[in-house]
Design a protein around this nucleic acid. Structure first.
Length: 283
DNA sequence: ATCCAGGCCCGAT
DNA sequence: ATCGGGCATGGA
């Protein structure tokens, strides 16, 4: 087993996991040990002084974790482009050096983000962990923590709305059924679709709107031109770019603004804007 | 106890 | 096109 060390300037796992883009992970030992999970893979990562120690082979790191963590992208270059668009983000970018946009499994993204609507992170994690435990497979153990794969669409195919309700998913139950159905009934490879066609496809699922679809595109398909607008982004974009207006600009317009302003870097800019808002906007 | 979440649907304008 | 009520659950 190779032991790989990744520089902390390049990657900040704690911040990345805490940035609200992912629910499939565990943090142990006071946020010094991380278990990353995607599909039926997992890896133990330990935070050391000299960097992050990945406990996996070089081959697995290259094929699974490097793409997952978006490590082949030059974030310094992206950051410079973003700062060129708005210098006010320089501070947020500096503070959040090492945050990455994850490339997660698309099915996991869809399901976990359907669950996420109108819920708090601990609740979401609990429900997602429960699904994995019940319908995934145990793929490892670390320090008494059992590690489960996320179920594939076929593993959830038999579940109906009533079943999801029983598992406390609330009104999202029918949305989950619809999401599973879409994956089961789609033979085409969605990653081949254009941004526009992919979004149309995702929104065709009952319970998936602009926000969830944009997040799935960004965090599941690596479509970095996506610019999801949630209540926080609304507040932040309004405060930064429309300080004079009252609340009459639609989410659609705000999304369009972000995409035009930041172009190919919209998704990453969105992440920094979110952090900027957390610093600057009291609410 | 009430209120309300990092949305979305649906029916009414 | 846009607005607002309703939706489940659980934590503040």
């Amino acid at each position: 087993m190779y032991k790989l060390i990744i520089d902390k300037n390049k990657l900040d796992i704690r911040k990345t996991l805490n940035s609200g883009q992912v629910f499939r992970y565990h943090m142990l030992n006071d946020e010094q040990i991380f278990i990353l999970m995607t599909g039926n893979h997992f890896v133990i990562v330990k935070s050391l002084d000299q960097g992050y120690l990945f406990e996996c082979s070089e081959e697995v790191f290259k094929s699974i974790w490097s793409p997952y963590l978006d490590l082949n992208r030059d974030y310094d270059k992206v950051n410079r482009r973003i700062i060129r668009k708005d210098k006010r983000l320089k501070e947020a970018i500096k503070l959040h050096q090492g945050i990455r946009i994850l490339k997660q499994d698309p099915f996991e993204m869809l399901i976990t983000f359907i669950v996420s609507q109108s819920k708090a992170i601990p609740q979401i994690k609990k429900l997602v962990d429960g699904l994995s435990e019940e319908f995934g497979e145990q793929i490892g153990t670390y320090d008494h923590v059992k590690i489960y794969s996320f179920p594939r669409p076929k593993d959830l195919a038999h579940l109906k709305e009533a079943d999801f309700r029983e598992m406390k998913f609330g009104y999202r139950a029918s949305y989950l059924e619809a999401g599973v159905d879409m994956f089961l009934n789609t033979s085409e490879d969605l990653s081949e679709l254009s941004d526009e066609a992919l979004k149309t496809k995702l929104i065709s699922v009952k319970g998936v709107g602009d926000k969830v679809a944009s997040c799935v595109m960004l965090f599941g398909y690596g479509r970095h031109k996506s610019f999801p607008i949630d209540v926080w982004m609304r507040r932040i974009v309004m405060a930064l770019y429309y300080p004079e207006e009252s609340i009459k600009i639609s989410d659609k317009k705000l999304e369009k603004f972000g995409k035009e302003m930041y172009g190919q870097d919209a998704g990453i800019a969105q992440q920094y804007l979110f952090e900027y808002g957390r610093i600057k906007i009291k609410n």
